[in-house]
Design a binder for these strands. Structure first.
Lengths: 128, 128
DNA sequence: CAGTATCCTGTTTGATACTG
DNA sequence: CAGTATCAAACAGGATACTG
């Protein structure tokens, strides 16, 4: 106990403009889960992600593509469309995401309670 | 395959000002790991987190406290100081964080390669 | 020691409307 | 269908200086 902390832990987690341990941007993990069962078209993704504007959804998908987690395929046929699907790399990410989700689900009530009681205390501090 | 996606997945992951599956803010996971071996004082945390300004470090610690992941204790003795330590809830989070870190480490090269080749392609698109 | 106060920047996200 | 363009808001994060 109480060993001195290493001088700089940044190299371990931080070269992370990529920031993989945060699973990318706000919607990344959700998108990856939407692709878990197989390729989906842009319009299909818009259904579960109805609260994400098309601009932001495109942004996120491009950034997932850039990270090698998602493939984008254009079908220029009679009914032109675009499909997104997980790469093997993207698929491998399902596991840590599931672990994080399971943790969150498992501790959801505790998390809500903690926040509530913290906020209640803060209110008391202000009120007197 | 190609089952329709659920209408709205947001309730599952999204009530997330807390956003637990993203492990909180930019420094949260790193801070939690710094506390893994036991309680640390503010000034001790500043060593490994030297690139985080005190303001932001305080912010992050408060938000971890609010989430019930960290306890803050003030010692108003001769040498007044403050200690932060993981709650049991916070400690339970070490596991999913470790899983995400392991994944990132394991696929680091793939991630760098993917990004590089994506960017190279983009350059080609612009150049010719 | 352990923060707070201010100010400021860049990025992320969003609203709305439009298009090849 | 699968986006893009534009504008605006929100927020996170940081620089710097100061304090009970």
């Amino acid at each position: 106990m109480r060993e001195p902390l290493p001088a700089d832990m940044f190299d371990e987690l931080c070269p992370s403009s990529l920031n993989p341990i945060r699973f990318g941007d706000k919607w990344a993990a959700l998108i990856i889960r939407c692709l878990e069962q197989g390729p989906r078209r842009f319009s299909e993704l818009r259904v579960p992600l109805s609260r994400v504007t098309p601009k932001v959804l495109t942004q996120s998908l491009r950034s997932l593509e850039r990270a090698g987690l998602v493939n984008r395929t254009v079908y220029a046929e009679a009914t032109p469309h675009v499909e997104y699907e997980l790469t093997p790399l993207g698929r491998s990410m399902l596991e840590p995401i599931a672990a994080a989700c399971a943790w969150a689900e498992q501790h959801w009530d505790e998390l809500l309670d903690a926040r509530e009681s913290y906020d209640d205390d803060a209110r008391l501090d202000r009120t007197g």
